[in-house]
Design a protein around this nucleic acid. Structure first.
Lengths: 137, 137
DNA sequence: CTGCATCCCAAATGATACTG
DNA sequence: CAGTATCATTTGGGATGCAG
């Protein structure tokens, strides 16, 4: 086995079921895919600063459409990373915030963000090196 | 400012350029998006076990097509996370491996994977709680 | 063995209008 | 205010065949 079992949803050694299709059952990939879905990380980081209402989030995450905001919030809520509280006033207000589970995700997530920040110059340099030769012929 | 500046590509306080479009210039989001592109993480983890040849990677990452494997490897190479070495034999062989930069990404990445593994039961439970009421009416 | 080009379909996402 | 529904577009990604 050359691939990390944690990421491909390895079957037990005695289970010879061919992995030809539907590896989606791997829980780790499941979580990572969610974080990679373009908006989740941004929303989690925003909420890590404190609970926010729907429109506040929409304003805080500039390019997101209400459709995507709603959908992403639902996913995060479903996974137990954020809570949703409806105050039945008129007009009704809905606020969102991190759950303890969501809060526990922030340290590793921030570590990744810190890595990205820190190594951004190296990445930019690598890209310049990679892209440059094309211009030179 | 309610949103984390690191993730929305904040301009300097004196730069009032409206952020209405094209936030893609944020380097941190740029990196996170790359990690979220479904295959990059899997390839990085596989390569963290040592250099691999193209077909070995194709076999190690079960569901990937050659097209996606090539493309993802190119992206990672461009970003300086992996190297690519061509041995001009017949038939030619090409091997890939982590660069020091790529290696430096593994600790935070593994931390995130560890979080996902560790909290997977809680996430599954949260989903069951969220999905359950639908069946109950 | 590697990898690029093409075709094609499915999923993701934005825009917009409507509802409670 | 906080969504939901629909439409149109963009993008991701698989299959396949060709080339070095």
């Amino acid at each position: 086995m050359t691939t990390d079992d944690r990421l491909v949803g390895a079957a037990s050694p005695t289970d010879l079921t061919p992995p030809s299709r539907e590896h989606r059952s791997c829980p780790v990939r499941d979580v990572l895919d969610r974080l990679g879905d373009k908006w989740s990380t941004l929303i989690l980081v925003t909420l890590s600063q404190g609970p926010q209402r729907f429109n506040a989030l929409a304003r805080a995450v500039p390019d997101i459409s209400r459709r995507m905001l709603t959908e992403t919030l639902r996913h995060l809520e479903r996974d137990g990373l954020i809570w949703r509280k409806v105050t039945p006033s008129t007009p009704p207000t809905v606020s969102y915030g991190l759950t303890p589970l969501g809060t526990s995700l922030m340290p590793p997530l921030n570590a990744l963000i810190a890595w990205a920040e820190r190594h951004q110059p190296e990445i930019a340099a690598a890209r310049a090196r990679f892209d440059g030769p094309i211009a030179n012929g």
